[in-house]
Nucleic acid binder design. Structure first.
Length: 437
RNA sequence: UGGCCCGUGGUGUAACGGUAGCACAGCAGAUUUUGGUUCUGUUUGUCAGGGUUCAAAUCCUUGCGGGCCAACCA
């Protein structure tokens, strides 16, 4: 068995972009002899990598892809149709144009890095005299704070940085769906982004805008408290339960209303109370008043703490004549917060996602994995939800009032639903506090 | 220092050679029982020089900047 040129020898004989290549010892092997060799390659008479078939084009071309490119190498890869009978495997450039041509593709669209491949794509089609498919190149859609390369995403999956291809932090379609993105929002996003030949990095803010725009119109509002503080209404009758009403979606009156249980003990969000509030904070603080949405106005009378100073619960009084829809109190409060009756709240798991990378363009880093965001996932094992959120359909999407949009994860069980946060609501207060600090 | 592709506000994308527009973001205000939504106003741009033309983001040219190309990868 003769020994052919090694990969290193072939690479060296191709020259460099500024230096023309030089012919190797087998360049002028007669076609009949090559055909016979190819047949033996195909039949498995040689070990993998023993030799290759190359096209004889132009070793001096300024386009490296035209310097006698490989057509077939020996590679015993299993094929889903033909199984193991062919021991050769075509190169992308050789197969690409023929696949397109067989399918009568007129416009074969790909990304910018294939521009220098186009002359080769066309050369093969001309030589073969087959249906003239044409290749057109456009810039890929890059998003900031993530990577789009399939090879890099594969590493994230294989090396366990994410749970899988549909981990809601991934920029894949399956992940975006699991996260709660609607098909319509993705199409709208693509429409707004447009297509051009210019390298780009699109702000994820645009993607988030598109899903908020869509879900704002559709998603039913529900109350959920992610990180609770207990509120005790000292002047509310112990054991009493009142059924109040709240709208399912203020953007859609057809969505109707639902009942909400109100009682002496409530949960509110930790973020909605501050002992020493900054200027312009209009949620709850000692002595301060807020409206419990669709319920009563309350005033904080005491923050109860343990011996070490940890906040245990809040004592508040409610204003009986301030009930929503029947408010005769004359009070004007700026803050409106969501709440849940402790006795009527159910537990749920909530998964909060942040960007997967800490830099805008991780692919530009020496090692993109070094810029992975360590806290891109926060799991709240016990959040509280209202009864209307029990046993939701997988994939169902809701707005948790004042918190954001959430989608039901397939990990949900009958006992405990699991929600993925798709995106937060726009939060101008968070922006304000950032500016203040 | 060979060849190819691309340069329009912060981002993305428009403009037969004829008023540089749209969206997101930002900023300011109004409304609001979600600091959401909605509404109003507003800041910011043709990479630079030369040429052609009555007229250049657009055509030519030089420079500058960015990207791609030398895998038995796709």
């Amino acid at each position: 068995m003769s020994t052919f040129s090694s990969p290193e020898e072939i690479a060296a004989s191709k020259g460099s972009p500024t230096v023309p290549g030089t012919p190797g010892p087998y360049r002028d092997t007669p076609p009949a002899e090559n055909l016979a060799l190819l047949e033996r390659m195909k039949n498995g008479e040689f070990p993998d990598g023993h030799c290759v078939l190359r096209a004889k084009i132009d070793l001096a071309s300024p386009n490296m892809h035209l310097r006698d490119p490989y057509l077939y190498r020996i590679k015993r890869a299993h094929h889903h149709r033909t199984g193991d009978i062919w021991c050769i495997y075509p190169m992308y450039d050789w197969a690409h144009g023929q696949c397109d041509s067989i399918e009568q593709i007129t416009h074969s669209i790909c990304t910018l890095e294939f521009i220098p491949h186009r002359p080769l794509y066309e050369w093969f089609i001309e030589q073969l005299n087959i249906f003239p498919s044409r290749q057109y190149e456009f810039a890929r859609l890059n998003l900031n704070y993530t990577v789009m390369s399939k090879r890099k995403l594969l590493q994230l999956v294989n090396e366990g940085y994410v749970r899988g291809w549909d981990d809601p932090r991934m920029p894949t379609i399956s992940a975006l769906r699991r996260r709660g993105y609607t098909p319509e929002s993705l199409r709208e996003f693509a429409r707004r982004v447009g297509v051009a030949k210019r390298e780009n990095i699109i702000d994820v803010g645009l993607l988030e805008f598109c899903i908020r725009e869509d879900l704002n119109k559709q998603a039913l509002r529900r109350f959920a408290v992610l990180k609770p503080i207990k509120v005790v209404l000292t002047n509310y009758p112990e054991g009493q339960v009142e059924w109040l009403e709240t709208e399912n979606n203020p953007e859609d009156t057809d969505a109707g209303k639902r009942p909400l249980a109100f009682s002496q003990e409530l949960y509110i969000e930790q973020d909605d109370f501050m002992e020493n509030p900054p200027p312009k904070y209009f949620r709850l603080y000692p002595g301060g008043m807020v409206r419990l949405k669709s319920a009563y106005i309350i005033q904080c009378t005491e923050a109860v703490k343990d011996a070490r100073g940890n906040l245990l619960e809040l004592r508040c009084i409610y204003v009986p004549e301030s009930r929503s829809g029947a408010d005769t109190s004359g009070l004007k409060v700026k803050g409106v917060i969501h709440w849940l009756s402790v006795a009527h709240a159910h537990p749920a798991e909530v998964r909060l996602y942040d960007r997967l990378f800490q830099v805008e363009d991780p692919a530009a880093e020496d090692d993109f994995k070094k810029s992975i965001h360590p806290d891109s996932l926060e799991v709240i094992e016990q959040a509280w939800i209202e009864p209307a959120l029990l046993r939701p359909a997988t994939g169902a999407r809701f707005q948790f009032t004042r918190l954001g949009y959430f989608a039901v994860d397939p990990d949900s069980t009958a006992d405990k639903p699991v929600f993925n946060r798709t995106v937060t609501l726009k939060d101008t207060w968070a922006k304000e506090t950032q500016k203040q600090s």
